[in-house]
Design a protein around this nucleic acid. Sequence first.
DNA 1: GATGAATGAGTATTCATTCAT
DNA 2: CATGAATGAATACTCATTCAT
Lengths: 201, 201, 201, 201
Amino acid sequence: MRKAPNQARSRATVEAIVHAGARVLADRGWAGFTTNRVAEVAGVSIGSLYQYFPDKLSLIDAVRRRHLEECLAIMRAARHDGKPLGRFLDDLVGDMMAAHDSHPGLHRVLLDEAPANGPHDPHSAYEREYLGHYAAAVAAYRRHRTETGDETVAMIMSDAVDGVIHNAARRGTLRSPEVKRELVRMLALYLAGPSADQDLG
Amino acid sequence: MRKAPNQARSRATVEAIVHAGARVLADRGWAGFTTNRVAEVAGVSIGSLYQYFPDKLSLIDAVRRRHLEECLAIMRAARHDGKPLGRFLDDLVGDMMAAHDSHPGLHRVLLDEAPANGPHDPHSAYEREYLGHYAAAVAAYRRHRTETGDETVAMIMSDAVDGVIHNAARRGTLRSPEVKRELVRMLALYLAGPSADQDLG
Amino acid sequence: MRKAPNQARSRATVEAIVHAGARVLADRGWAGFTTNRVAEVAGVSIGSLYQYFPDKLSLIDAVRRRHLEECLAIMRAARHDGKPLGRFLDDLVGDMMAAHDSHPGLHRVLLDEAPANGPHDPHSAYEREYLGHYAAAVAAYRRHRTETGDETVAMIMSDAVDGVIHNAARRGTLRSPEVKRELVRMLALYLAGPSADQDLG
Amino acid sequence: MRKAPNQARSRATVEAIVHAGARVLADRGWAGFTTNRVAEVAGVSIGSLYQYFPDKLSLIDAVRRRHLEECLAIMRAARHDGKPLGRFLDDLVGDMMAAHDSHPGLHRVLLDEAPANGPHDPHSAYEREYLGHYAAAVAAYRRHRTETGDETVAMIMSDAVDGVIHNAARRGTLRSPEVKRELVRMLALYLAGPSADQDLG
DNA sequence: GATGAATGAGTATTCATTCAT
DNA sequence: CATGAATGAATACTCATTCAT
């Protein structure tokens, strides 16, 4: 960002711009994301937008950072302190679906356009922490030890949640209790289940 | 499409354009997808591109149709005729991962710029058949009957596969045997598992 | 128009664009009318042109509206309040020839590319008022009443003036006093003359 | 033209192209006149069109020549050998209106786009002969000798006819007997009338 | 700071024309 | 000769970005 918004009004302006950016990205996709449109939706002039964001990319980065931070906050809040597994998954999946319900499709769009995927970019940092939370839960709840590491199991779970939630967002079924229940059931069975080599005949 | 390619030469041209379109979309994303670039990569003039596709969007549609058709072909080929479940899932997931390995990220980009997802657009038709194949497999292999329909289970499975594969594509781990094995394990446990209400404590 | 020019600067810009459009259309005809050329002649960037006009056609419409409005202004100013007929026609034809002398050929080009001449398009509205003025003059000066209505006579006169003036524009003889005198004479004789059925032997 | 069509089939092809050119020009105006469209309407391939016409301009010239030739043929046929004036004008105007009824607007479009208006271009040659026929008629029928030459009177008449007919074409009233009658009446009164200086009160 | 008019490089698209079949 | 696929210069139009007010 070009400059730190010091005064209250400035902060509100930046807030409005980032929020509008998320909205436009979710509603119109990459092709419909133009700086002029974002400024219009935010209710500020295009000049003001460039006062705070040096270019389009930095605005997208801000939107991305904001969204990933929200997802991380949910993960951080999803404590597995003594909760039974079913309850833990229920809370986690429920909160995640709720979070995506406000801007369906945003997450998906944000992750698609590969943003300089070096190991040090913000997305990677986010992902490391994100998967770390999942791995901790896996370590806490997993029943059967196999040769597969917690990190891999965590990744599979995270990606499955991602897939189910974002396809639900696309179909407009984010609020379906059935979808939520089945996703939770799949994760629970996965965590509870025996190793791959056993009787899946 | 503006014009049906009748002669052999023109069919080859259209083929090259669609193929180049997939490549450019996968490599450069929405922002890098320009008709001139596609024409260049295809090795044809921009005029030839517009001879067959009335505009940029119709070209993207063609690329999408082509890709979805490839995915459907895999589903159709994945017969569950007497195979044990583990074998069936192994084949299906393996083929799907291989298919996405050629253009990692393409599927995701294609599905996310959601253009008018009414129930009658080609993507919906594709999705109906796609989920239908999954549902047939679910009906064949499911052990425990619950109140949840085969279609819902099929959708969860399909979306989970989607999420895992496309995040793997993003991370460059599409060829990892571990990822494949765990995804198969999760699906198998899900299909084999008891209803949600049981002892997931 | 895409956007109303509010500030003084933007009004000047729109003015310059429309004026340049008339000039380019008159000088180079349809084939030479390109938006980039108009912008260049207007001394503004191509972006500014598209800030106010959504496409080429809307710019042509603006030029047309402007020109028709100028012609109407001449008709409105040509009062037949007690003037003798000769004087009235002299003033009217003189003003009209002068008006076309600034952009010879513009009128013809504008009217000929007939874009959807339904009864409700702006050109029709213009034509109704235009012919109305002529009809009023006919009613005031006509000597012999025939079965032909004032409106028809007005239309014949208007079209004849149109034909003579625009062919004169094409030939570069718009300032010829002889042309003006003879056109006036023809109109006067027509208005003064007896019905068609009489001795035209 | 690139080469003379010798065989019967070639002549028919050229014929079809010129005819289609007139049709497209009349129906779609300058903006819609493309060589590919003309070829399509003519039912020949674009390659065949370029076999006979080296470029677009030469095709337009052919269409123009053809149309002007038709108008000239009407003038040549309109003999004033002893006919009374009323009869002569009636025939001339009637034939001219009929000629324009097949391709309304064509003449207008053809004359608008100023085609290299040197004194030696085909249009000027046409115009000279055309006005010459009118002048001969004027000389034959004019009643009052004034200081204005026959050529000027002829030009005014020709231009008035042009204006009335082409505006009628635009309005779709080319077959109106009233329009024809009034146009004839105006021309007759003009030819019969006294000099400009007299009692036009 | 805020504004929004202006800019112009860059993209989408057309269409006259060529040439291999 | 006829065909129509291919070409690419030229045009229409967009949108990130600047800057005078």
